[in-house]
Amino acid sequence: MADTYYDPADLRKFGKISEWSEELGSKFFDYYGKVFEEGALSAREKSLIALAVAHVVKCPYCIDAYTKDGLQRGITKEEMMESVHVGAAIESGATLVHGVQMMKKYDKLSM
């Protein structure tokens, strides 16, 4: 076993999850593949969304995968960084919007 939780080489073993549950694994990978096909959104747009989400869920495998995917699609580093900021803005906004709850509770508890 590696002495760290994350090993970059594990990413290419992702497909192995099907070995312990063939049905669920293949259903997942079919679904995953379908999601990223060209659709109402382009595969390029989906790649940038995936990159933003990868940062929000803080998945190092996903960050590696979608940085490479973006490079392959000719996506520029400026576009990639903007997508990360979109993720960060939503994430910080999600924290801050709870401030309303705090304010309401504060007001309710205060005379």
């Binding site: 382009s42 595969a43 390029r44 490479k68 490079l71 392959q72 699609r73 000719g74």
Partner: peptide, 13 residues
């Protein structure tokens, strides 16, 4: 590709 990655879809590029 300008690096260690494969080319993406030719038509899209």
């Amino acid at each position: 590709p300008s690096g260690a990655f494969l080319p993406g879809n030719q038509a899209a590029l």
